[in-house]
Design a protein around this nucleic acid. Structure first.
Lengths: 200, 200, 200, 200
DNA sequence: TATGAATGAGGCTTCATTCAT
DNA sequence: AATGAATGAAGCCTCATTCAT
C-alpha cells in the first residue's frame, strides 16, 4: 500500500502555497530551491509534480485566477440592488488590492512566458470570464463595456502599483459611477454594437 | 567639458539604441552580451559607460519616458479644439500601441528593480507628468481625473496586450468620450478636491 | 525453497525484460523510473530485487550473455560439415546483427562500470567461452585463433555499427573464408608462436 | 587592444588537453566542472568556447581522429618495403594500444550522442579515411579489404580492452600476415563479389 | 576608450535511492 | 512483496561582471 496521497490534491496544495512567493517576488526572481524551501519540500519533489518551473507557474496562475473569478462574482450576488453593487465591488477590490496587483503582475509574467509557446489562450479566457462577469453583474448585457471596465480596473491597480499616491481607489470608483449613471440616463437606448452619444 | 559632452552624447546614443531590445524582450531576458552585440560594441564598453545592467536599464527607461511625454503632449497642441482632441489622442495611441505596451512592461520591470532600492520616485514623477498633461490638455484642471484617465489608458494597453481580441481601442475611446461629456454636462460645477455626485 | 525459486524466477523475468531497454539506449541513458515503467512495476520493487542499478545491469548482462553463447554454439551443431559452418554462422550473425551490436555496447558499459570494482572477470569469462566455442566449432583446436577470429567478428559488428555502409557482412565472411583456407593449406609450417597443426 | 589570443588556437588547445580526461573516463563520467579544473580554467570559459558539453566532445573527437590518421599514415611511409610494413604498423599499434582503445571508446560515445542528431557522417568519414589509408599503404588498392582489415584492428583493440589476457597483439599480427600472404598467393582468383586484381 | 577573454556564483533540472505505508 | 512519494547531491549551463591588454 502506498502512502495515501491524492496526487492532484497534493499538486493543488503545492500550487496554492506557491502563490504567495511568486506574487511577492515575480516569476524570474523566485528560484526553485527557494520555492522548495518555502513549501518545506525538496527540489526533487517539485519536479515530481511538475515538469519544470514554467509549467508549475502556469498551473499556479491558472488555478488562482479561476478561484479568484469565482470569489469576485460571488461577492456580487445577483440579489444585491444594482445601486449598491459598485461600492461593494470597490470595497472588495480595495481590501484585496495587493492581491489583485500581484495577479496582474503574474499575468504579465505568464504572458511573456507563453507568447512564444502559443499558450496564450489561457489569458484570453480569463480576461473574457472577468469581462463577462462584470457585464452580468452590473447590468451591462450586450454592451461590450464589461471588458472596457475591466481595463479600467486593471489600469487602476496598475497605476496604484507604480505610484500609489497619485490617485485613490475612491476617485476611481467615483468616475466609474459617473460613467454608469451617464449610461443609465441616456434616453435613447444604446445603439447596438457600441451605442452612446445620446444627450437630451 | 567637451569631453563630457561627447561622453554623455555617446551614453544617450547607447541608451536610445538599447530601447528596442529591452522593449521587445523585457529586462530579464536581455543579456549584457546580447545587448553589446546589438549595439555593436564590446561588453566591456557597456561597463565603461554604466556601472551595471540595472543602472543602464534605469537610465534608458527614464530617458525614453521623458521623451515620450514630450511627444504625446506635443501631439495635443493647446490650439486644437477640445472636441477633436480625444480622437487625435486615440489615433496616436492606436498607431503606437505596441510602443506604449512596451513602455508599460518596462515600467513594471523598472519598478520591481527599484522598490527595494527606494528609487521608485522616478515612476511617481512620470505618472504625475502624464496625469497632469492629460488634465491640462483635456480641460480637466483641478479635477484629479487626469490620473484616473491615465489609469484607464494604461488598463487599455494592458488588457489589449494580454488579450487583444476582447475589446478594441475604439470601444475604449467611446467610453471615455461618454464620460467626458457626462462630466461636462453636469450642471453644478464639480466641487473642488474630488467633487461630483451632484444633480438629480 | 519454493519461495526462493519464485523469487529467482521473478528476478530473471525482470532481467530478461530489462534487456531490450538497456540494449536500445545504453546503460547511462536508462533511468530506474523508466525501467520500472517499462517493466510495469514500481521503482521500489526494483530495489527489492536488486541492490542498485549497477547490480541489476550486471546481472542482466551476465544472464543474457550466457544465454547467447548457448544459442550461437547450438547453431553450429557439431554434425554440420565444416565447409558449411562458416556460411551458417554468418547467416546467423547477419540476421541478429543489431542484437550483437547491442551486446557489444553493453559489454563496454559493463566494463566501464566494473574495472574499478575488480569484477571484470565476468567479461574475461565470456570472451573465453566464445573464443573456445569458435575454435571448437571451426576445427581450430589448439591454435589460439579462436580468440583472434572472435576479435574479427567483434570488429565487424563494431565498424558496421559506426559506419554501416563502408563494408558488408559478406565481405567480412569472404575474408575469413580465405583465411581459413589459407590456414588449412599453408605448406610452410607457421612459425612457432602460433603454429601448430597444419599438416603436410 | 584585447588580450591577444587566437580564438581557434585556444579552442584547439583546450580540446587537445581535454582528450586525456575523456579518454580515461568516458563521455558520461566526465563533468564539466571536472574538465574545467583539469584544464585549469573556469566552467564559464568552456561555455565561452563551446556551446555545450556535447559539442565540445564532438569537436575534440573530430580533431583527435584527424590528427591520428595523419600520424598513422605517416608511420607507414610509402617508401618502406611492403614486407616490413605490417610489423612496423603493429609495433606502432602495440606501443599506442591504450590510446587507440580510448579512441575506439570515444567513437562509440560519439556515435550514441549523434545518431539521434543525424550527425553521424563524421564517423563514416573517419572510418573511410582509415580504411582507404590501409588499402593504400598495404597495397590493397581496389579490394575493399581495407575496411575489413580496419574492422579486424578495431576488434583487436576491443577484445583486448575487455579481456587483455585472452590473446596477444602478436597473435593478431600473425593472422593478418597469413591472410595477406594468402591473398597474394591465391592462384585461383577470388570469386566475384570480392575478387580482384591480384594474380600475375 | 575599447576589447573580449575569463570568472564563478547560482539557476534549472535529473535521478539513484530510501522509506512510510 | 509492492507502491510511489520524497530526498538531495550533483550535473549542465547562464550571465553579470572584471581585468589584462
Amino acid at each position: 500500500m502506498p502512502k495515501i496521497v491524492d496526487h492532484d490534491q497534493r499538486r493543488e496544495e503545492l500550487l496554492t502555497t506557491s502563490f504567495a512567493l511568486f506574487a511577492q517576488r515575480g516569476y524570474a526572481a523566485v528560484t526553485m530551491r527557494e520555492l522548495a524551501r518555502e513549501l518545506d519540500v525538496s527540489t526533487g519533489l517539485l519536479y515530481y509534480y511538475f515538469p519544470n518551473k514554467e509549467a508549475l507557474f502556469e498551473q499556479m496562475f491558472t488555478l488562482m485566477s479561476r478561484r479568484d473569478v469565482s470569489r469576485v462574482t460571488a461577492e456580487l450576488d445577483a440579489t444585491i440592488p444594482i445601486s449598491d453593487k459598485l461600492s461593494i465591488l470597490f470595497k472588495y477590490l480595495a481590501k484585496n488590492e495587493s492581491h489583485f496587483q500581484n495577479l496582474l503582475l503574474m499575468a504579465l509574467d505568464f504572458h511573456r512566458q507563453n507568447v512564444e509557446h502559443g499558450r496564450d489562450h489561457v489569458l484570453q479566457d480569463i480576461v473574457k470570464i472577468y469581462s463577462d462577469a462584470i457585464e452580468d453583474r452590473l447590468n451591462l448585457h450586450g454592451t461590450h463595456f464589461g471588458s472596457v471596465i475591466f481595463s479600467f480596473l486593471c489600469g487602476m491597480f496598475f497605476q496604484r502599483y507604480l505610484a500609489p499616491d497619485i490617485s485613490s481607489i475612491e476617485e476611481h470608483r467615483l468616475l466609474i459611477q459617473q460613467l454608469l449613471q451617464g449610461l443609465a440616463f441616456s434616453n435613447p437606448p444604446l445603439p447596438d454594437a457600441v451605442n452612446h452619444k445620446r444627450h437630451a
